[in-house]
Design a protein around this nucleic acid. Sequence first.
RNA 1: GCCCGCUUGGCGGAAUCGGUAGACGCAACGGACUUAAAAUCCGUUUCUGGGCAACCGGAGUGGGGGUUCGAGUCCCCCAGCGGGCACCA
Length: 854
Amino acid sequence: MSRYNHKETEAKWQAVWTERRTFETREDPSKPKYYVLEMFPYPSGRIHMGHVRNYTMGDVVARYKRARGYNVLHPMGWDAFGLPAENAAIEAKVHPAKWTYANIDQMRAQLKLMGLSLDWSREIATCDPSYYRHEQKMFLDFLEAGLAYRKESWVNWDPVDQTVLANEQVIDGRGWRSGAPVERRKLNQWFFRITAYANDLLRELDRLERWPDKVRVMQQKWIGRSVGARVTFRLAKRDDALEIYTTRPDTLFGASFAAISADHPLAETIAAQNPAAAAFVEECRRLGTSEAAIETAEKKGFDTGLKAIHPLVEGWELPLYIANFVLMEYGTGAIFGCPAHDQRDLDFARKYGLPVKPVVIPAGEAPERFAIGDEAYTGDGRLANSDFLDGLDVETAKARVIERLEALGHGRGEVNFRLRDWGISRQRYWGCPVPVINCPSCGVVPVPEKDLPVKLPDDVTFDKPGNPLDHHPTWKHVACPRCGAAALRETDTFDTFVESSWYFARFCSPRASEPVARAAVDYWLPVDQYIGGIEHAILHLLYSRFYARAMRRCGYLAVDEPFAGLFTQGMVCHETYRSADGRWLSPAEVERDKSGRVVERASGGAVAIGRSEKMSKSRKNTVDPTEIIETYGADTARWFMLSDSPPDRDMEWTAEGVEGAWRYVNRLWRAVEQNGPRMASLGAPRPAQLGSAAETVRRRIHKTIDGVTQDLEQFRFNRAVARVHELSNGLAELAGEEPDIAWVLREGYEALVRLIGPMMPHLAEALWQQLGHSRLLVDEPWPVAEPALLIDETVTIAVQVNGKLRATLELPRDAEKTAAEEAALALPAVAKAAEGRPVRRVIMVPNRVINVVV
RNA sequence: GCCCGCUUGGCGGAAUCGGUAGACGCAACGGACUUAAAAUCCGUUUCUGGGCAACCGGAGUGGGGGUUCGAGUCCCCCAGCGGGCACCA
C-alpha cells in the first residue's frame, strides 16, 4: 500500500490548477457572482500562522461558492507601503522598494504552497506606480469635490517615527507602532472629509446585517453621535461671545461656570496678555490628552477673570475658566459647567468652591431637600429651580430650552460627532506622494492629470531623521503648473490606510487605465465576504466605507458599502516557554524528555510552560507555516486550522493537534485505497434492495452532506470537520462485501471527498482521481443531499419522569400521541421512577421527548 | 468608570426553537500486532456510590435565586476572565 505523499500530490495539483488557469476569473453576467476577499497582507517578509488561518477560511468559502455555481472572484495583493520598509532601509541599508519586492516574492511563493484558489493574474502591490497613480488621480477628484482639504492643525506627532499619526493610531497616548508617547504639534496637514458622511456612516451600520454586532457597535461608538445644543454666552465688558456645546441644555439653570480648552482661540488671546494664563495653557499642552488619561485627570482650571453672561437670565454672570479637561477637538472647545448633573463639573466646582445647584430632581425626592454629595446626579427626573422649565421632564425641557434659545437668538439645536476628519499626511518616504505643488503665488496647485503619477524618487538617503523626500536635492523643486514660477512639490505622502481603502475595488479591474473599470466594479462589488482580523474593526473598515462613498460621489462606483459580509477571525495562539534563567524559548527549542517533562532541547534544562498567547516574535512562540507545510503538507495545516476552535475565536496551535490532522489525512487516504476493490462497482446502478446496514449508512451520508453544507454557509468550519470525522468513522465500520454495501461505501467516500474539497483541496483532488474520475474535483458541483434521507423512519424518544431521563423509546416517526404515551407508561423504568404515584400529566414533544408528570 | 462578549470533562470544543449534556478531536490509560519501538488497529475515559459483571443509583454546564412539566439555553443578582471606549460636555 502506498503511503500518502503530500509533497508530490500537492505540487501536482497546484501545477494542474495553474496550467488550466482554473482560478482566473472574468465577468460573466450569466452566472451569479461572489467576491471573496481576505485582508491583504503587509509584505513583512514571511507569512505567519495568522495569514494561514485567514487565507484558509477565505479559500474554503471561495472553493465552496465555486462548487455551488458562483462566478467567484478571489484575488490577492500586497499592502506594500509602510514604515517597516523604511526601518529596513535605515537598519539594513537596503532600499525600501527592493526590500518590499523581495518580501513579496518570498511570501507569494509561500502562499502558493497553501494551494489557495486565488486568481494570481490580478495581483497588485500598492507601492507600484501603476497602483498609486490612480490613488493620486482620485485624490485630485476628491480635492475638487471638497472631500480633501489642507489645514493647519494640531497633530499627534510620533517623535520616534518622526511622523504624524491619525487619532486612531494613538493608543493610550502612544504611537500605535513605535509605542512612543505622542507629542502635539501644529502643522499644515491634508485631510479627508470623512465627517461629511458621519451621519450616513452611522445610519448605514444598521443595514450591514452580515457584519458582527461587535464591529458595528465599535464603529457606532467611534462615530459617536450626540444630540444637544450650541449656546451663545456673551462676554461681559467685551464685544465678543463664547459658543459652547452641550447635550444637557435642560440644565442651563444649574450653571455655575463656563470653561474653555487651553487650545481655544480665546485662551490664546488671554495667554498673550497674561503670563499666568500662558503658563497654565502651557502646562495643559504639555500634559496633553495622553498624560491626562494616564493620571485619571485631576480637574484644573485658571480663572480668566472674564464673565460669561447667562443666555436666559439677564444679569447672571458666570466665571470663565481655562480648564484642562475641555477638549478643543470636540464641540466648540467650550462648555458651561453644571456641577449638580455632571461629574467632571462637580469635581471642578468642589475644587474651586463654585455653587452646586440641582435642577433635575429624581422621582420621589422633594426639590428643596434634594442635595448633591460627591456624585453628580445624571439620571432622569423633573426640572426644578429652572424658571419656565420647572416640573418638566428632561426631554421636554431640552426641547423647550432650545425653542427659547432660538427665539432669543442665543442658540440652536445641534448634533455633534466624535468622529474627526481623517488626517492623511505623513512625513515619510515609503508612501504615495500627495500630488500637489505649493506655489508661492498660486498657493496649492494640483498636479495636472497628464503629469501623473508623481513617482517616488529612487535615489534617497535615510541617514538623518525626518522625511527623505524633503531632504532630496532636486525632487521637490518644480515649476508651478499654473504660473510657471519656481515652486515646491508637496513632500508629504499618504497614510498607508489610503491604499487599503480602495484595493478591493482595484481588484475588479487591476490593469485598467482608470482607477477602476466601471463595468467591472458594477459587476463585482460589493465584496460578498470579507475576512480578516478584529484589529481592523474601526480604522480600515471605516476608511473603506468612507472611500466607497467618496468614489461614488466622484463617479467611480455605484455602491456605498464595500463589504456586504464581514467575518472577523480569532488569533492563532501558542504556549509560551521560558528557560530557568528567563529566556523565551521557541517551540522548536523545546522537547519532551523520556519522563514527559518539557525541557530545553539544547541543554536539557528545565522549561517553564506559560499560558497560551498570540503568536509573536517577542514571546518566540511562533511556528513557521512553511516548515509545517514541508513536514505535513498544506492540507494538514489547513485541516487543523479549521478543526478545533470556532473561527471567530482564538485558537491554540499545538503539535499534537497537527499530528491529529495529519493522521486523519493518512487514514482517509488509506481508507479509499483499501476499499478500492470493494468499491470496484464503478458507476454501477444502485442495487434494487439495500440492506438495513446500508440504508442506515446512506442516511448518515446524506445527513452529513446537508450538515456540512449548512456549516460552511455559516462559518462553522469546526463542526463541518467533526461531521466529516463522524462519517469517516461510520464508513470504516461498514463491513461486508455484498453489492449494496459496496455501493453505499462508494457513495459515502465520494461524498466525503467532495465535502473536504474546499478544506483539503489537494487530498480531495487526489482521492477523486483515485475513485476513478477523470474530471477535476474542482470543476465538480457541490453534492446535494436527498431530502428523503434526511428524515428518519424511526426516532429515539427520551422518556422522562418529572423532567428526569428514565428511559428511551424507539418509535416510528410522528407516532400518535396516545400510542406513544401508552408505550412510555408501559416502561418498567417509568413505573419504578413513579413509585406508585398516579400520573398527573403527560407532556409530549413529537419525536423528541415524553415527560410523565407524577 | 461605561459598553460588549465569554465561563460546559484533563484540554479545544459540540448541543440550530427550552426537550437524551459532553458529538468530534487532543491527551491519558488498557489491549492487539511487533524481537522491540514507531506506525496502525480495537477498547475505556464527566465526577461519584454499589456490583465480578452486564448493570443500578446520585450529582453535574462559574456561584446564588427565579420562570417552566422540563433550563447549558430564558429572567434577576454576584464572581472571574477577555475585549472595546474612556475628561466627547
